[in-house]
């Protein structure tokens, strides 16, 4: 697949998902969705870090090196964010 075609199809995807939004909002929405998926991804693969035993960890370990920087922020977010918002409310 050429780069141009790939971008083309992504544009199609983007248009269908983000139809009606302003460019700026679209970008924010896409990033936010991606961020949320990132958390889900780490939960599914590394869940036992938080005490949620989900899956056999053998292959999770292979992915671990790539998520090292995200782990502490993720852990914080997963465990604390709601309390912070509760507290500020």
């Amino acid at each position: 697949m050429t780069e141009k075609k790939r971008k083309g199809s992504l544009w199609e995807t983007a248009k269908s998902i983000l139809y009606g939004m302003a460019g700026h909002d679209m970008a924010r929405f896409a990033l936010k969705t991606r961020g949320s998926m990132e958390h889900l991804f780490i939960l599914i693969t590394m869940g036992d870090l938080l005490g949620v035993p989900i899956l056999p960890p053998y292959y999770s370990l292979r992915l671990l090196p790539y998520v090292v920087p995200q782990i502490s922020t993720w852990k914080r977010r997963m465990l604390r964010e709601r309390d912070l918002t509760d507290a500020l409310a």
Binding site: L18, A27, A30, L31, R34, M37, I44
Partner: peptide, 27 residues
């Protein structure tokens, strides 16, 4: 089981990449 597990995670990851690319393109 592993095969199904990996398929699902791969799909999630692919979707994530698409969103990231959309954002990159938009910006």
């Amino acid at each position: 089981v592993y095969d199904q597990w990996i398929q699902k995670i791969t799909k999630l990851r692919e979707e994530m990449e698409e969103y990231a690319q959309v954002a990159a393109l938009l910006q």
